[in-house]
Amino acid sequence: MIVSSALMIWKGLMVVTGSESPIVVVLSGSMEPAFHRGDLLFLTNYQDDPIRVGEIVVFKVEGRDIPIVHRVLKLHEKRNGTVKFVTKGDNNSVDDRGLYAPGQQWLTKKDVVGRARGFLPYVGMVTIYMNEYPKFKYAVLVCLGLYVLVHRE
C-alpha cells in the first residue's frame, strides 16, 4: 500500500513536471555556495519553455551514471529551433567541456533531465548517508522492522 502510493506519487510528479526525475539530490559541491551536498532540487522540463542562459539545468552525459547540476553559460539557437549550450558550475573556474563525453562540445535538449525550479536545503542528506554507509541503512531498516513488530497492538 505505502510502496504503491509512493510509486504513484513519483510517476504522477513525472507526468506533471515533464521530467524523468522530478526531484534530485545535489551530490557535489560544484554549485556552492548556492547548493551544497544534500540539498534537494525540484525540477520541471516543459518542452515549450525555452532554455535560457543563467538557468540551472540537470543533464546527463554519456558514460556518467550521475546527472550533473550546473548553470547554462552560453547558448546558440538555430532558426529551426535546435539549441546547443555550454554549462558551468558556479564553484568551478572553467566551463564543463572537460566533463562532457570525449569530443562533445555542446549539450542539446535531449541531454537535459530537468531545470531547477525549487530548492529545499539539507533534506537529501538522509539519502546520501544511506548510500555512503550501508550499515546505517540496514540499522534504520532493522529499527523500523523491530518497531513495527514490537508495537503492533
Binding site: 555556495p33 548556492a34 535560457r52 542562459v53 543563467g54 548553470r71 553559460l73 552560453k74 547558448l75 546558440h76 539557437e77 538555430k78 532558426r79 558556479d90
Partner: peptide
C-alpha cells in the same frame, strides 16, 4: 534570500543563429 547570482548576458542574433546568449561576467 541566501544568495544572488548576478550574470551579465550579451544577446544578439547572427545569420547563423537566430538567438545567441553569452554570459560574459558573473558574480555571487
Amino acid at each position: 534570500v541566501k544568495q544572488l547570482f548576478l550574470y551579465l548576458t550579451a544577446e544578439y542574433s547572427t545569420p547563423n543563429n537566430i538567438l545567441s546568449q553569452v554570459v560574459i561576467w558573473d558574480k555571487i
